[in-house]
């Protein structure tokens, strides 16, 4: 794929999905994938299919739930929504991520 695209860090995808659902409300798999692509400005080398195992993982943990519904174009699709536990989990996951990012940033800061 494109040379400037980054691989998605393990675990990052989960948080992206959660944040997407938090921002957009219930959404189907394709919608989530598109949203992640748009937000990342197509900067991620992400096969759209990869989000399905991630969605299943979040479902198994009970952070999101899935229901069959109808899309805006009247197509049957599975819609994912945050659960109460999921909502709480976002905070913690965000914190985690920021800590890692902060640590990383300190490493990457020009040393003087």
């Amino acid at each position: 794929m494109g040379e400037n695209k980054s691989d998605v860090l393990q675990g990052t995808l989960d948080l992206m999905v959660l944040k997407t659902l938090e921002a957009m409300g219930p959404l189907h798999g394709y919608g989530i994938a598109r949203r992640i692509e748009q937000v990342s400005d197509n900067g991620l080398s992400l096969n759209q299919g990869t989000i399905y195992p991630a969605l299943l993982r979040l479902q198994q943990r009970g952070w999101i739930r899935a229901d069959w519904g109808t899309s805006e174009t009247k197509r049957r699709a599975k819609f994912y929504a945050l659960t109460r536990i999921g909502r709480k989990q976002i905070e913690q996951e965000t914190e985690n991520w920021e800590r890692i990012a902060g640590t990383m940033a300190r490493f990457l800061a020009p040393s003087n």
Partner: peptide
């Protein structure tokens, strides 16, 4: 079956767009 249908709908949505 569920997964098949979900993936099919994913592709359909993408094609539509």
């Amino acid at each position: 079956e569920d997964l098949d249908e979900e993936l099919r709908s994913h592709i359909d949505l993408a094609v539509e767009e």
